[in-house]
Design a protein around this nucleic acid. Structure first.
Lengths: 305, 305
DNA sequence: GGTTAGCGTTGCCTCTGGGGCAACAATAAT
DNA sequence: ATTATTGTTGCCCCAGAGGCAACGCTAACC
């Protein structure tokens, strides 16, 4: 595959620079015979004479001159390669492949990514978003280094790096008829409310399904969707309520377009936001450091519910 | 100097292509342990992880991907390098460094170079011209592979590849008063003729000096020059005569502007045109082949005087 | 012109280090 | 839980790289 051995090349190159095999041997700290043999071996493998052996040293033949410029060129290319590696190691660049649950997007981009970018500029991101199930799958199959998802069940292949309880709340529009419901809201009350819910595959959707089963009820879901944007709009427009962890709507809470109400349903309070990787996978350092930033800056992981 | 070992690179590359160390080991015909160790050694020398070891094989890390593209690129460059070597070996290209005596220029360019170019296109020439002494020096100091000169004396450092007797003739203009001199011309006659002669350092000049000494005479040299063109013009214009081997004025003889007359001076008939190289120098094949063309096609070497 | 110094090369020997073998740990699939 | 497959590691052996010294050769020097 590669006909040009590196050690042999070095001998050849130094011999050309020094002009004699003996001085090359001194510079490289080996015997002249070694240099002689290495160059000869290189010539054999290339099938071409590379140096003229003369009375007072050696000089490259025409083929040798060509090889020399080739090696010089390659050497400089290798230096840029090594500096790229240095940049990778020194956290000056890198690529992070992250899969995030839809609910984490704004939190992640607005907080974790922002602070990380300030600390380590030069990193690029491959950001997948989707349901909890999709995030888990991406991590399992190494399509992402790191996953952020809600209510990701334990499984052998997944190693959880951080996990914070984030109970589901009832989200309502402050201007709607449901704004003055008294807390905590019970399952019985919930059953009567028009709602927009996430489909299964999403952590939230699965939790609600479990709660429905436990209480033997079915919520009046006007909408089942795979889009959080649908749920938010649904609530803001006063069409009904939804059930989500609070961190998903941090901004809407802040600007007063959505309000939260505690739920008195134990099954809906067990949810956890988690950061996880594939079990056994050796991660780039950049990813490890990113986990720190996530746990320190993201609302979903800072606030213990 | 070179941190990237070729054998290690090959292991790494094949492992990435095959997707597992074991299949790579099969393809390379070695044990998996070898591949594993080589890749690990490469990682150590580069100070960077290159592959992620996984449950069902290996895959390059980010650094590994960069290295991979680098190696691919290098591989293709190496191929072009090897094809250049092939071209050199196959006599499809090369550079010939030739030093020729001034008198050989038109003969060499018109005959040897022409036929050689037809046989081996793609060769380039570095053509030095000068006196016999300059040609010898160029060959001695390896500034030329091959030398063509007149009356190059024997010396240890020079190996003569071909040598042909080329006696000096008297050159006259056919329309001049010396056109009807009877042959052979003696030294005594020569002494009375106005002449243009080459300076010493040239083979011809040195021979004439020797003959002068042997006969105890001095020729009436109106002009001493280091330029054959001067001598030719001098004769053509009917200003006098000169002494040169006939092959120097082949064209002038052919078109009738210069005529030759035999000389009855033994010292002036001993001259030889020779092709030579530095003793002990290993020559590119192209040069060896060129010698054939020279001896077969050049007037100076074809015609035994 | 012989002699000497310096060049690259080669034969011999030593010993390092690459690579085979087999057992092992870890993981995915059954 | 078990099995099959992955990469890894300890052990051992031998090819091959490299040191040593003698050699052949050329160039320069007296």
């Amino acid at each position: 595959m590669f006909k040009i051995d590196t050690v042999q090349s070095a001998s050849f190159l130094v011999a050309c620079e020094e002009g004699s095999i003996r001085s090359a041997s001194e510079r490289l700290g080996v015997e002249p015979s070694t240099i002689s043999r290495q160059i000869k071996a290189l010539e054999t493998s290339l099938g071409t004479a590379l140096i003229e052996r003369g009375r007072k040293g050696v000089r490259p033949t025409e083929a040798g001159t060509i090889l020399r410029t080739y090696l010089k060129h390659q050497q400089s290319e290798q230096e840029t390669l090594l500096s790229e590696f240095d940049a990778l190691k020194g956290m000056r660049r890198g690529e992070l492949m992250i899969a995030v649950g839809d609910g984490f997007i704004s939190d992640f981009v607005g907080n974790a990514m922002t602070s990380y970018k300030a600390a380590f500029p030069g990193f690029t991101y491959d950001l997948l978003s989707g349901s909890t199930e999709q995030v888990l799958h991406a991590v399992r199959t190494d399509r992402a280094h790191l996953g952020l998802a809600y209510n990701a069940g334990k499984e052998r292949a997944i190693r959880t790096a951080a996990q914070v309880k984030q109970p589901l709340d009832l989200l309502v529009s402050p201007t709607s008829e449901w704004a003055d419901l008294s807390e905590p809201v019970t399952m019985a009350q919930l059953e009567t409310l028009p709602s927009a819910l996430l489909k299964s595959g999403f952590g939230v959707g699965d939790m609600i399904a479990v709660a429905e089963g436990a209480h033997g009820v079915r919520l009046r879901a006007l909408v089942h969707s795979n889009s959080l944007a649908v749920l938010r709009s649904f609530v803001r427009e006063g069409l009904g309520v939804t059930v989500l962890p609070a961190f998903v709507v941090t901004r809407e809470i802040a600007d007063g377009t959505i309000a939260t109400k505690r739920l008195a349903v134990p099954e809906l309070r067990k949810g956890e936001a988690s950061v996880f990787t594939r079990y056994g996978r050796r991660l780039p350092e950049g990813v490890t450091r990113l986990v720190d930033h996530i746990t320190r800056s993201m609302v979903a992981f800072r606030n213990a519910g």
